[in-house]
Computed example of a mutant assay.
Amino acid sequence: MKLFFREQMPLLLIYVMQLFLILLVYWLDGYRNMAVSVYAAVLSLCLLTGYLIYRYIRNKGFYQRLEKTLTSIDELVNEPQGAGSPLTEGLQQLLKNQYSQYKKDLHTYKHRLEDHIQFINQWVHQMKTPISVIHLMIQEEDDPRFKAIADEIDRLKKGLEMVLYIARLETFERDFYVETLYLESIVRSVTSNQKRLFIRKRIFPSIQIDVHSTIVSDEKWLSFVITQLITNAIRYTVEENRKVYFREYSRGKNRILEIQDEGVGIPSSDILRVFDPYFTGENGRNFQESTGMGLYLAKQICEKLGHQIEIESKVNHGTTVRIIF
C-alpha cells in the first residue's frame, strides 16, 4: 500500500494543482457560486478515487511482491500473478527473460568451473608421476646434493597436494567418506609420512594418544589437515632438538586432538587473522616458505567435516592448535 501511494503521489499533486488552477480561473472570471464549485470538485475527487482504487486492485499482487522480502530468487518469477497493467505485465516478462538468461550463464560458468577443476586434478596427478620417479632414482644416493634434491621434491609434492585439495574443496560433498577412525593410528601415519621433514629440521614428534581412542571423520581429509598443522609446526620451529606434541583428551562430549610446537609463536596482532586466506603476517616475512593457505584450508575442511579448530599462541613459546571432534 505504501509503495502504491508513493507511485501515485505525483498524480495526486498534479490533480490538486489542476483543481486549484481551474477554481482560480473561474474565480477571476467573476464566478462566485461556491456550492457548484465544491460539488464539481467532489465529483472530480470521486472519479480520481475510483480510478486509484481500480489501479490498486488490478496491480495489488504486483505491489505486494515488490514489498515482500524474497527468500529465493525463484520466487520472483514463479509466483502466480493476475492480470495487471501493460507496464506490470511487461516488467514481469522482462524479469522472466533476465532470470532465464541468468540461469543459462550460471550453468555455463558451472560447467567451466567443473572443467577447470578436472583439468587441475589431471595435471596434478600427471605431475606426481615424474616426481615419484625422480624420488625413486635418488633415494639410495648418499651424496648431499641428492638429499637436497629430495627435500625440494618433498616441497613440490606438498605444493601439488595443496593445489589438489584446494580444487577439490569446491566439490567436497562428492569426495568424502565418514567413518570411525583410530586417532592414534591416523596421527602416527601422518607423522611417518612427514619423517623426512622431521629429520631435516631435527625435530621429534611426541605422540601421547590412547591407541583405542576413536573419532568419526574422513581419513583422507583429516590427514591432510594434520599434515598442514605439522608442516606449520616444524616450519616455525627454528631451534633443533625440539618436539611437536600430539595429545588427545575429552572436553565434555567432544574429543580433542591437540598439536603443540615449541616454535617462534604467533604475534597477538596476527592471531585473529591466521585463518584468512593468503595471510602470512609477521612470521610470513621472516619465513619465505609461508603461503598463508595452510590454516585457511584446515579451517575450511574442518567446518565441512563438522569439526571445529582453535588456536592459541605465545611469542617465543610456541603455538597450540586443537581440532575438536
Rank of each mutant, 00 (worst) to 15 (best):
Q118K: 10
D270P: 01
L11F: 10
I230S: 00
L91D: 05
S192W: 00
F287E: 07
N286W: 13
G159T: 04
G265L: 02
W123G: 06
E114Y: 10
D142Y: 08
L52W: 01
T49M: 07
I117K: 03
L169E: 07
I22E: 06
L87A: 10
Q81N: 13
T171I: 11
T171M: 08
T108S: 15
K299S: 05
L95S: 10
F279Q: 05
I138W: 04
L160G: 04
I134N: 09
I301N: 00
E161M: 08
S185Q: 01
V77Y: 01
T88V: 14
K96W: 12
F246N: 00
L164W: 06
Y63D: 03
V225G: 04
D276T: 08
G84W: 11
I131D: 04
Q18F: 15
D115M: 04
E89G: 11
Q118L: 12
I14P: 10
P86E: 01
K104V: 15
L76Y: 04
L229E: 01
E219R: 00
G159Q: 02
L257S: 01
I57S: 12
H111D: 14
E310P: 06
E248Q: 05
V211C: 09
N241K: 09
N316Q: 12
R322C: 06
S189F: 01
H212Y: 11
Q98D: 07
H135G: 15
S44N: 05
N316S: 10
T71M: 02
L11K: 05
T180L: 00
E282Q: 10
D142V: 09
D276M: 02
T214C: 01
R196N: 09
Q208N: 08
T320A: 11
F204L: 09
K157N: 15
G292T: 05
E141R: 14
S206E: 14
H111V: 12
I324W: 00
R58E: 10
V238Q: 14
V38Q: 07
K304R: 06
E152P: 06
K147N: 09
V178M: 10
K220C: 15
Y278M: 11
I266R: 02
F4V: 05
I215Q: 02
S189P: 06
F204G: 08
V225S: 01
Q126R: 10
E161K: 09
M9H: 15
E114G: 11
F5I: 12
G252F: 02
Y63P: 06
L19F: 08
N78Y: 14
E282S: 12
Q194E: 05
G50V: 05
L272E: 15
V274M: 07
L47V: 10
F224C: 04
L45D: 09
M9R: 09
K304F: 09
Q208C: 07
L11T: 12
G159M: 12
L169S: 03
R6A: 14
K195I: 03
V244C: 00
Y165W: 13
G82F: 02
K96H: 12
G84F: 06
I149T: 07
S44M: 02
D115Y: 04
L181W: 04
F275L: 01
K220I: 15
R188M: 03
D29S: 13
M127Q: 11
H307V: 07
V225Y: 01
K220E: 13
